[in-house]
């Protein structure tokens, strides 16, 4: 009996200790994550009022408005299109580079990995600025076109879907390459030797052996790139301007310039649902371990 009560006391003490360890971080996140998210959720059911910011109410009008208005409809469509095309571009560009990295010797591999990783160390604003320098009205491409008389006046390259797409492809490409290399590195080289010895050509091996084996890496990379792209703010704001809005940039606009918090809040949950939907889809396709 005595031993049992001691272990009972020890168990209680451990429990109290554990609570003390965990309480600060959980309290902090309850106040600064859960509360703000709940407040935005509540706000999405209020009614916008130009005079008083918003009127407390409980209506689905903001959601109905966002999902039926052609403006928001095309906004959501454009954001999803951006996510899909950027993901595809990073896959098409990233796969050859990842294959090259996996097939390289030690030294070449370190060099290539350093080159792929280094943009990740550079601030997002700086990386986006770099594209403004290249694509801007007085940018390198336009300077070249004007200098060689290929164009009479600067061609507007920024403020377009293309410039946002290009910038985001450049920024997310390292994430895709890293995901692919991570899987390729773990593959058993003997599989390829076996395929070769059975007479398979390089392209046959790529299509029928490598690609199926690297699918988990493609899935992980696509998830990272897609979620980053549809939620990106800096790059679409700078390279797309006001003409090529995405869900994020319009949310920002609703919360700052036009001060329409209720509609902004509804858009927040549209964006959150897109993100969660993709994560769910990824889980369904690739299972728990992906």
């Amino acid at each position: 009996m005595a031993a049992a009560s001691i272990s009972e006391a020890a168990r209680r003490r451990r429990q109290i200790e554990r609570t003390l360890y965990l309480a600060p971080s959980i309290a902090f996140l309850l106040i600064f994550i859960v509360l703000p998210y709940l407040a935005v959720f509540r706000m999405s059911f209020n009614t916008f009022s130009p005079m008083r910011l918003f009127v407390e109410s409980f209506t689905f009008d903001n959601y109905v408005g966002v999902l039926s208005d052609p403006y928001y409809y095309s906004l959501i469509f454009r954001t999803l299109l951006l996510g899909t095309t950027v993901t595809l571009a990073t896959l098409v560009l990233g796969l050859p580079l990842a294959l090259k990295i996996a097939a390289s010797g030690r030294r070449m591999k370190s060099l290539l990995m350093a080159l792929v990783l280094s943009p990740l160390l550079i601030n997002l604003v700086v990386r986006t600025y770099a594209w403004l320098v290249v694509l801007g009205d007085k940018g390198l491409i336009n300077e070249f076109l004007l200098g060689t008389d290929l164009a009479a006046s600067p061609i507007r390259l920024t403020g377009s879907f293309f410039s946002v797409w290009l910038g985001l492809t450049h920024i997310t490409l390292p994430l895709m390459v890293l995901s692919l290399v991570g899987v390729l590195e773990k593959l058993d080289r003997r599989v390829f030797e076996a395929a070769t010895s059975l007479g398979a050509g390089e392209w046959f091996i790529l299509r029928r052996v490598t690609l199926p084996l690297v699918m988990p890496g493609i899935g992980a990379g696509a998830l990272l790139v897609f979620c980053f792209t549809v939620s990106a703010f800096i790059t679409p704001a700078l390279l797309g301007g006001s003409r090529v809005g995405t869900v994020s940039t319009v949310i920002f606009e609703k919360f700052t310039y036009s001060m329409n918090w209720p509609v902004g809040s509804a858009l927040v949950f549209v964006l959150l649902i897109i993100n969660m939907g993709v994560i769910w889809l990824h889980g369904r396709i690739f299972g728990e371990h992906a």
Binding site: K100, A103, V116
Partner: peptide
């Protein structure tokens, strides 16, 4: 593994794409 020339050429092209804007900024 695939050691095809084409893959290698594309791979180096992609590396140039990754680095070029940053080199432009530093040089500029």
């Amino acid at each position: 593994m695939i050691e095809s020339r084409i893959v290698s050429v594309i791979a180096w092209g992609v590396v140039v794409f990754l680095m070029a804007p940053l080199i432009v900024v530093i040089g500029g």
